[in-house]
Amino acid sequence: MERNLLKSQKNGTGEEEEKKNSGKKPIGDDESKEKEKVQSEIEPKTGLSFPVKLDDGQQLNAVGVRKKSMLGISIKVYGFGMYADNARLKDVLESKFGKAPAKPTEEMYRLVIDSDAGMQVRLVIVFSQLTMSMVRKNFDEGLGASIKKLTGAKNGELAKKVMGEASDDIKLTSGSAVEISRLPGYILQTKVMGEVVSKVESELLCRAYVNMYLGDDPLDKEAKDRFGMSLISLF
């Protein structure tokens, strides 16, 4: 009887310990969650999260939002993150500037626009009623205008190559991603929801695309300024 009582007491203790342990978080759980927070940045106007580093090593230098006026109402079309090969950009900047300027200069932005350093702008759709044809039209107009600023001529045919073979049937729901990358050698690559839809070798097209974000009439002035401050931090 005494043995049964001891056994019962041990079982009870074991059950209590098990209950206590079941409510505990695994060691390092809070730490891993904190790490996850550190590894992404939130674009405040859309609430979208962007990883601070891509698989290829490019780092997030700025986040922003693209707005467009429709029937007199300002609509958030997409949030974006601007990534770059910062080691390469550092070399580009240091070859021109001996030390960091007090604040970002147009000459700094121009060096980035004209270089072939790896960059990516990751667009995440916010406007749920966006269609592929609307995206195509938006890029054709925006890039065409950017090309005209650089050369004096619009060159609509070159601008149209960015969306390449992307089908107008593609449904871009909220959260869908479009990634447009400038690869070394002045190659502009476009991915829609992870699928490559175009890959165009053109120095002008690469410069015109980056100019949309870092030129004298950027899509998001605050994002351009943040990117500029990240450039200064590279020195």
Rank of each mutant, 00 (worst) to 15 (best):
K224M: 11
Y109L: 13
M134V: 00
G47Q: 02
E201M: 07
K149Q: 14
R136T: 15
E107A: 11
N61D: 05
S32F: 03
P44L: 14
S174Y: 13
E34C: 01
E203F: 10
P218R: 14
K25D: 15
S128M: 07
L188W: 09
K160T: 15
Y78P: 04
R110I: 03
I42E: 02
M134F: 01
T13M: 15
D91H: 05
E41A: 06
K99Y: 01
I147W: 06
Y109M: 14
I125N: 15
E43I: 02
F227H: 04
G98Y: 03
G72M: 07
K171C: 11
L89T: 05
S32V: 07
G28M: 02
I73H: 07
A84E: 11
D85A: 01
K24N: 14
M70F: 15
G215K: 05
M119S: 04
D168M: 01
E179M: 10
F227Q: 01
A62H: 01
E201P: 00
A62G: 01
F50Q: 05
A177L: 12
Q129A: 10
E31R: 05
K90Q: 12
Q59M: 13
A87G: 10
T173R: 12
V52A: 01
K148G: 04
G228H: 01
G98C: 08
D220A: 09
E16V: 14
L231K: 06
Q58W: 03
D140R: 11
K25P: 12
L219F: 06
L60S: 04
D56I: 14
V63R: 04
K53S: 08
S230C: 14
I125A: 10
L234H: 03
